[in-house]
C-alpha cells in the first residue's frame, strides 16, 4: 500500500532550560492510504502536539514530514502550508468548532468554497456528506440548534469535504456518550474508507478500539506500537 504520511525525527520542546517540557522526542510515524489508526496515551504524552505538527498547524522544532510524496516539512515548512492544508488535510477536534453564523450545510461547503469549488457543486457534495452522516434533514440548522453529537458529525463532514489525503481527529468523541461516540467513529471509518483517506485519531475511549486498523501508544513524547 502507498504511504499517505511519513514523519521522522519529530522533536518539540516547550519552554527553555530546566523548566522546559519535551512534548515530542524523535517521533516517527507513518500511515498507509485509507488506514485508520488510533493514538492512545496518558494526558500530557504529546499526542495533541504530534497532531498539530503532522497537520501543519504548529511546526515541530525539527524533523521531516512527507505527505503523499511531497516533503512539506524538513526543519522548516517547504510549501505554502495553508494552501496545502486546504486541499489535503482535514481536522476534527473535541469541540466541533463550527462557524456559528453558518448553517450545517454551509459549514460543510466552506472548505470547498475556500478551495474555489463552485457553489452548485459544493452544495451538492455538502448534501451528500451530510446524508452519509445522517444529517441531511438538519442541513439548514445553525450549530446552536444542533446537539453535540450532531455538531460533531457536521464537523467530520466538513473535515472530509475536500476529500483530504489525511484526517486528524483529536478526541473527537470525548464530548459524546459511548453509544454516539462509537457510532461517530464507525461513520468516520466508513467514509474514510470510501474516500481512501488515512485517519489518525487520538482517543481515550478504549471500548471502540476494535474499529481501528492499528493502534499506536504515546508516552513521554515517544511513540510505540501496541
Amino acid at each position: 500500500m502507498k504511504q499517505a504520511l511519513l514523519a521522522e525525527n519529530l522533536c518539540k520542546r516547550y519552554g527553555r532550560g530546566d523548566t522546559g517540557v519535551t512534548a515530542m522526542d524523535n517521533v516517527a510515524i507513518s500511515l498507509d492510504t485509507g488506514e485508520v489508526v488510533a493514538l492512545l496515551g496518558p494526558s500530557g504524552a504529546g499526542k495533541s502536539t504530534l497532531l498539530t505538527a503532522l497537520g501543519l498547524i504548529r511546526p515541530p522544532d525539527s524533523g521531516r514530514i512527507v505527505i503523499d510524496g511531497t516533503v512539506v516539512f524538513d526543519n522548516g515548512y517547504k510549501t505554502d502550508v495553508r494552501a496545502f492544508r486546504r486541499s489535503n488535510i482535514g481536522f476534527v477536534f473535541q469541540k466541533a468548532n463550527l462557524l456559528p453564523f453558518l448553517t450545517a450545510r454551509e459549514n460543510v461547503q466552506l472548505p470547498m468554497e475556500l478551495d474555489d469549488i463552485s457553489g452548485g457543486k459544493s452544495r451538492r457534495r455538502a448534501m451528500e456528506l451530510l446524508e452519509q452522516f445522517g444529517m441531511e434533514n438538519r442541513q439548514g440548522f445553525k450549530p446552536s440548534e444542533l446537539s453535540g453529537g450532531q455538531q460533531q458529525r457536521v464537523a467530520i463532514a466538513r473535515a472530509l469535504a475536500n476529500c483530504p489525503k489525511l484526517l486528524f481527529a483529536d478526541e473527537p468523541t470525548a464530548a459524546l456518550d459511548s453509544v454516539m461516540g462509537r457510532k461517530v467513529m464507525e461513520m468516520m471509518k466508513r467514509v474514510a474508507h470510501d474516500f481512501q483517506t488515512s485517519v489518525l485519531v487520538v482517543t481515550h475511549d478504549t471500548r471502540a478500539l476494535d474499529v481501528f486498523d492499528r493502534i499506536l501508544r504515546m508516552e513521554d513524547g515517544k511513540i510505540g506500537e501496541k
Binding site: I57, R82, A83, F84, R85, R86, S87, F91, N97, L99, P100, L110, P111, L114, D115, R158
Partner: peptide, 16 residues
C-alpha cells in the same frame, strides 16, 4: 478571533 483561527485552519486565504 476564534472563527478566524478556524478559517485559517481550514486553509482560508488572507483575502477571505
Amino acid at each position: 478571533v476564534h472563527d478566524i483561527a478556524m478559517l485559517k485552519l481550514l486553509g482560508a486565504r488572507n483575502g477571505v
